[in-house]
């Protein structure tokens, strides 16, 4: 059953189209990764999907066409995390998380005590317990990303769009973040799309991978089921010559490992 679909999305800046005619479908409870080289249009695609960037084509979420909704209704249904949050004033981490409740609040309403508790719980969930009163600007880049992730987790949205949420995180937090995203997306009535640079994360945590190249779709792979040679072939078009191997971790779970080969 299709939960979210993009139909013929074309968008760009000024007159230059960065992405052209992108269409794909996403099932409920799925985590989709978008991978591609720098400048392939990953960020542009995400911005077009949530309507920040003017675009042609349409997006359907849960049988509702997003382009017909007011921006406030879109905000209530879709959450978007930019690569870097633009927050540039002194503000506490808890207040940043509380911003996530804004779509649920009226213009003059203030967050309730319950919301504050939920926000503190979300901070604890991403590993920032006890940092509620810290100044957001004094957090490390990775902590900022976690804080903004917490802001997204408290919102009651159906679709999560994340632009390289793991870029400033260390090894351990990367895996923790993707695990959190998986958990979040697997609940009914939700899906998430995330652009990633790290193929190891993408291959092992995403249900589907959308491969972007020069503003178009190179292909879609499903890491759990697709044959290795097909995935190797497609990933090599993005990263140059690579090899894929399946192996079993200590817990007995299969996982994929990608190795860069020497170019011939």
């Amino acid at each position: 059953m299709t939960f979210f679909s993009a139909n013929g999305i074309t968008a760009g800046y000024g007159r230059q189209n960065v992405i052209e005619n992108i269409s794909f479908q996403l099932a409920e409870g799925c985590l989709m990764g978008i991978i591609g080289a720098n400048g392939s249009g990953k960020t542009t695609l995400l911005k077009a999907l949530c309507g920040i960037l003017p675009h042609r084509g349409s997006c359907t979420l849960d049988s509702v066409v997003l382009e017909r909704l007011s921006s406030r209704k879109i905000a209530a249904a879709v959450s978007y995390i930019p690569q870097r949050s633009g927050i540039s004033i002194d503000i506490s981490a808890l207040d940043v998380v509380l911003m996530g409740f804004n779509p649920q609040l009226g213009l003059l309403e203030y967050p309730t005590q319950k919301m504050k508790q939920a926000a503190a719980a979300a901070l604890a969930q991403v590993g920032l317990a006890g940092k509620e009163e810290m100044n957001y600007l004094q957090l490390s880049e990775g902590q900022k990303q976690l804080c903004v992730l917490a802001r997204t987790l408290v919102s009651d949205s159906k679709l999560l769009l994340l632009d390289e949420p793991e870029s400033a995180l260390d090894f351990r937090f990367r895996y923790q973040m993707l695990k959190l995203l998986r958990q979040w997306a697997s609940k009914p009535g939700r899906s998430a799309i995330v652009t990633l640079h790290d193929p190891a994360l993408a291959l092992n945590y995403c249900d589907q991978l959308l491969l972007l190249s020069d503003g178009g779709i190179l292909g879609i792979i499903e890491p759990k089921t697709d044959p290795l040679d097909k995935m190797e072939h497609m990933l090599s078009q993005i990263y140059g010559c690579v090899s894929l191997r399946r192996c079993i971790n200590r817990g007995g779970q299969p996982c994929l490992v990608m190795v860069k080969e020497e170019e011939q």
């Binding site: 911005k47 920040i52 406030r72 905000a75 879709v78 978007y80 949050s85 633009g86 540039s88 779509p103």
Partner: peptide
């Protein structure tokens, strides 16, 4: 305070 976030970000937080 919400307006102090980046424009697209603020919009996705439901700010007109």
């Amino acid at each position: 305070i919400l307006l102090s976030a980046e424009e697209g970000e603020a919009r996705m937080l439901g700010v007109n």
